[in-house]
C-alpha cells in the first residue's frame, strides 16, 4: 500500500527524493559490484538516476517498488555494460564450501559473468522474487534462479590448495 502511494506521488512528479533516499544506497552498491572501478560505477548510477524520472510515471501500482527498481536497474546496467542475453547455465554445488575472505570475495565476484552477477546483486539488495524478476525481465524463472545460484556457489566454493 505504501508502495502504491509512493508510486502515485511519483506519477505526479513528486516523491523522487524519497525514492532515492531509500533506493539510492543499495543501487550504488549494485553499481559498485558491477563496474570495474568507482568512476564507471558513478556513470552507471548517473544513468539509472537519469532514467528514473522517465520510468516512474509508467510504474504499475500493482507491483512493488523493489521489483520495478530491479527491472529498471537491470535494464540500464544491461544496456550500459552490453550484457549478453540469457543462455543455459550449468550449476553444480561445490564439494566443499567456506565463507570467503574479502579478497576472495572481491576476486570471485569479479570473475562471475556480469549477466549472472547482476542477478545475484539485484537479489541481494532488492530481494525481488525470481518469478517476478523473470516476468519483468523476459528471462525464464529457472534462468534467474540458476544465474543467482551459480554466483552464490562460486562465492563460497573452497579453492583447491
Amino acid at each position: 500500500m505504501a508502495d502504491a502511494r509512493l508510486i502515485q506521488a511519483l506519477r505526479r512528479g513528486e516523491g523522487l527524493d524519497r525514492l532515492w533516499q531509500d533506493w539510492g544506497p543499495p543501487t550504488w552498491s549494485i553499481c559498485l559490484g558491477m563496474a570495474p572501478d568507482r568512476a564507471r560505477a558513478r556513470e552507471l548510477l548517473a544513468d539509472i538516476a537519469r532514467s528514473l524520472p522517465l520510468a516512474v510515471p509508467g510504474w504499475s501500482l500493482d507491483a512493488s517498488i523493489c521489483c520495478q527498481m530491479s527491472k529498471l536497474v537491470w535494464q540500464r546496467i544491461s544496456i550500459r555494460l552490453e550484457l549478453p542475453a540469457p543462455a543455459s547455465i550449468e550449476i553444480e554445488a561445490p564439494a566443499r564450501t567456506a565463507t570467503p575472505t574479502s579478497d576472495q570475495l572481491r576476486r570471485r565476484l569479479a570473475a562471475c559473468p556480469p549477466e549472472h552477477r547482476v542477478i545475484y546483486l539485484l537479489d541481494l539488495y532488492y530481494r525481488c522474487p525470481s518469478a517476478i524478476l523473470a516476468e519483468l525481465s523476459g528471462w525464464g524463472e529457472e534462468q534467474v534462479r540458476a544465474a543467482r545460484a551459480a554466483v552464490a556457489w562460486s562465492l563460497v566454493a573452497e579453492e583447491a590448495s
Partner: peptide, 16 residues
C-alpha cells in the same frame, strides 16, 4: 551458513 555469510560479506564489501 557459508552462503548466508557470503551474502553478508558481499554487503559489507559493497557498502559505501
Amino acid at each position: 551458513r557459508a552462503l548466508r555469510e557470503a551474502e553478508a560479506a558481499c554487503r559489507e564489501l559493497l557498502a559505501d
